[in-house]
């Protein structure tokens, strides 16, 4: 089983998923803290018709085009949600459910059209984008993940102080000269792009987990933003590696779901054992230290 670790396919897939999960963990933490975790879910589902439109336009499963289609639909979905919640009494909760299911419905309709149409060939790969099948990732898929993740992480590091103050205290951040609109836009674009490049690895339905779970884990272990980010990044990476390994060694374990399961186990453990988890707060409460 050790030779799995050095096999070419495994390495390609593992590099891709680990870097993706690391970047998603860090960027996603911001939305978890802002209480906007499920926007990523809606965007994730909404990218699916974008994939198929892109495929219909070019006729082949070409990584960059499909990712572009996903990004465009992700942006479209986000702004539709924004407009609906801003100018009607519809709540974010409902708007997310509506957009998520409508766009996914469009994707399903297009998928049935493409698959029933003799003009299109090579359509069996479409399902990989719904459930994620990292085993079929190509070199270009991994390159794209690396490019998107590295750019996102660099931007995040560069604007770290801005982002931190903006998320914690938006009006104060404005008063010291932070461009809050730009920060918001940057976080959003990073989220959408990471979702788009990660679809093939994890799938449209489950990708939101990569954005939420690491941040949640980080928040269960630390009081400090930089520490939360680091823990989030690494728990994402560890889950991705474990999930990829399991899916390579055991038949029938799709990569995406395996990563999500590994991550879920980490969440559960952190809820119990984390320094802010159940056991710890329970002990503190018994000693009467909690303020």
């Amino acid at each position: 089983m050790i030779d799995v670790l050095t096999s070419y396919t495994f390495l390609i897939v593992a590099i891709g998923t680990v870097i993706l999960a690391f970047a998603c963990g860090i960027v996603g933490t911001v939305s978890v803290i802002k209480g906007q975790s499920l926007i990523g879910d809606a965007i994730g589902h909404a990218t699916f018709p974008g994939i198929i439109f892109a495929f219909m336009l070019v006729g082949v499963m070409e990584t960059y085009t499909l990712a572009l289609g996903a990004v465009i639909f992700g942006i479209f979905a986000f702004f539709t949600i924004q407009i609906i919640t801003d100018s009607s009494k519809v709540t974010l909760d409902s708007a997310l459910a509506l957009i998520l299911s409508s766009f996914f419905g469009l994707g399903m309709a297009l998928k049935s059209y493409v698959q029933g149409h003799p003009g299109f060939s090579g359509t069996q790969g479409i399902d990989d984008y719904i459930f994620g099948q990292a085993a079929y990732m190509l070199r270009t898929d991994v390159y794209l993940i690396i490019i998107a993740s590295v750019i996102s992480l660099l931007l995040f590091m560069l604007f770290y102080s801005h982002i931190k103050i903006y998320v914690f205290d938006p009006i104060f951040s404005k008063s010291v000269g932070v461009n809050t609109g730009l920060m918001n836009f940057m976080i959003l674009s990073m989220t959408i792009v990471l979702i788009a490049v990660g679809l093939k690895a994890v799938g449209a339905i489950l990708i939101v987990n990569l954005l939420i779970a690491p941040g949640v884990i980080g928040l269960l272990w630390s009081n400090r933003f930089p520490m939360v980010l680091i823990i989030a990044g690494f728990s994402g990476a560890v889950s991705a590696f474990t999930g990829t390994y399991v899916s390579t060694v055991y038949a029938g374990f799709a990569t995406g779901p395996s990563i999500i399961l590994a991550m879920s186990i980490l969440v559960l453990l952190s809820m119990v054992f984390g320094s802010k988890g159940l056991l710890h707060t329970h002990r503190k409460r018994n000693q009467g230290v909690v303020s």
Partner: peptide
């Protein structure tokens, strides 16, 4: 100008310590 915000403007779920806030 040093600005002290109104309570509702701050995200209290943000993981940050007292010293860290003051350092801002």
């Amino acid at each position: 100008i040093a600005y002290v915000p109104q309570k509702g403007e701050v995200n209290w779920d943000f993981p940050t310590t007292v010293l860290d806030v003051v350092l801002m």
